[in-house]
Amino acid sequence: MSEPRQHSFNSPIGRIHLTETGGAITGLTWVSRETSKAHSDNAMTSLLAEAERQIHAYFAKTLKDFDLPLAFDRGSPFEQSVWRAMQEIPFGTVWTYGDIADHVGGVARAAGGACGSNPIPLIIPCHRVVGSNGKLTGFSGDGGIATKQQLLDHESDQLSLF
């Protein structure tokens, strides 16, 4: 596997840190400015630049579907099936953990655990997954549930429940 390339930039929901490995996005995390200095950019690639462009377009509401090569460098087969299923949730739509579980042949609690370990949040829209009663549960992004709510509000002009 090739050497990972990294890039950090500011977004409306905080500083985002992207990782590319082998020509695919393999990670997205939120970082503080202090942490991002430790994660300094190394050799910006065209894919990292395109990922940043698409994320900015998402926040400008000119892009609803990310079109980036993604790869999972970790996760069980079940977790990876959940991550692929989340990619099918359309912009402005929410699914429940039970919906995800039904889609992949598992149980809601396990689907929730897999959502929580999503290595590429935002691009793989785990923010579009809610509890069975519509309640917002955890989110890995900086700010936790408040950031999840912000992302859902961003998409709210087209939000539909399951």
Rank of each mutant, 00 (worst) to 15 (best):
S2Y: 04
P4A: 04
H7F: 04
S8V: 03
S11A: 01
S11L: 02
P12N: 12
P12C: 09
I13T: 00
R15Q: 10
I16Y: 00
I16W: 01
H17L: 06
H17Q: 08
L18D: 02
T19P: 08
E20I: 01
I25Q: 10
T26W: 00
T26M: 07
W30Q: 12
V31Y: 04
E34R: 00
S36N: 09
A38T: 03
A38G: 00
A38F: 00
H39V: 13
D41C: 01
N42Y: 02
N42T: 14
A43R: 03
T45E: 08
S46K: 14
S46R: 13
L47G: 01
L47C: 03
A57P: 12
L63E: 10
L63Q: 11
K64N: 15
D65Q: 15
D65K: 15
F66E: 15
L68S: 12
A71F: 04
A71D: 09
A71I: 02
F72W: 15
G75H: 11
S76A: 07
F78Q: 15
Q80D: 12
V82Y: 06
A85Q: 09
P90C: 07
F91V: 06
T93N: 08
T93P: 08
T96D: 05
Y97L: 13
A101M: 03
D102W: 07
D102P: 07
H103P: 10
G105P: 14
G106T: 03
G106Q: 05
V107P: 07
A108I: 07
R109G: 12
A110S: 13
A110H: 08
G113E: 02
A114S: 09
C115Q: 05
G116M: 14
N118D: 10
I120T: 04
L122G: 01
L122E: 00
I123Y: 01
I123K: 04
I124Q: 02
H127R: 06
G134P: 04
S140W: 06
G141S: 12
D142F: 13
G143Q: 06
G144R: 10
G144S: 12
I145D: 14
I145R: 15
L152D: 10
D153G: 12
D157H: 08
Q158R: 13
L159C: 05
S160R: 11
S160Y: 06
L161T: 15
L161E: 02
